[in-house]
Design a protein around this nucleic acid. Sequence first.
DNA 1: CAACGGACCTGCCTGC
DNA 2: TGCAGGCAGGTCCGTT
Length: 271
Amino acid sequence: MPELPEVETSRRGIAPHITGKRLTDVAIRQPSLRWPIPIEQCQALVGEKLVNVHRRAKYILLNFESGTLLLHLGMSGSLRVLEPTVEPVKHDHVDLIFDDQAMLRLNDPRRFGALLWAGREPYKHVLLTSLGPEPDDPAFNTDYCYQKSRGKRQAIKQWIMDGHVVVGVGNIYANESLFKAGIHPSRQAGKISRARYECLVSAIKSVISHAIEQGGTSLRDFTQADGKPGYFKQELAVYGRGDEPCVQCNTPLKATRHGQRATVYCTQCQT
DNA sequence: CAACGGACCTGCCTGC
DNA sequence: TGCAGGCAGGTCCGTT
């Protein structure tokens, strides 16, 4: 479900409803996510105010007065803000209940998500320390990519999906960005020219920022915090369109795999 | 060190 | 209708 645009959409959806409110109760029905939820540290936050809700990569940072809860949605997680009286359904693993009748509820069928305690200096948490720049960071630019990729034999698709290179480019937006830049997904990262990296960086920035504006991509069950779908799906050029005609040249799109992940590209437009 | 595959889970779809 | 198998938006970790 969530790549960076979906996570940012979720953050924007929940923040206005819970920022500045005081945590009054915590319900953890399933503590076994990717890593065990630190139940006692969550309960110790009861009585504290939620100062703000930030995001780094695909992590949502719930900043309380005494420290930060790190939230990751994994492959299938979603967040809703509901009234505390709403009955939980299957896979509603965690509720954070705030005063003023606001409840943040995490649902995650596959349980690849995470809720972790990151203390007073969350950016020093091991999961956040070695992350690459955000796509919209000026530090993510042509020179950075060109220099960092030299000597790398990895396929470009896998390289841009590596969070140590740039964060937030998951499988959907990797496919879309490579199509937009006209780059074949199998091309070796270390052999791509500076000029082509300029196209790719620009494509990644525009694809991600546009998807955020559209409220993310709704596939299967992704919805925004208010339950509405994202609207980016209708703009996908290649993802999920194997064998369908290329939007630019009508050639049937080729579906294949890179490192266990579905890859779709145009054999004519991407070289 | 780089690169790859496996692992963690459930749900949904396809084909027999 | 039932069931096995494959696949899904992420990413850490162990092994080559």
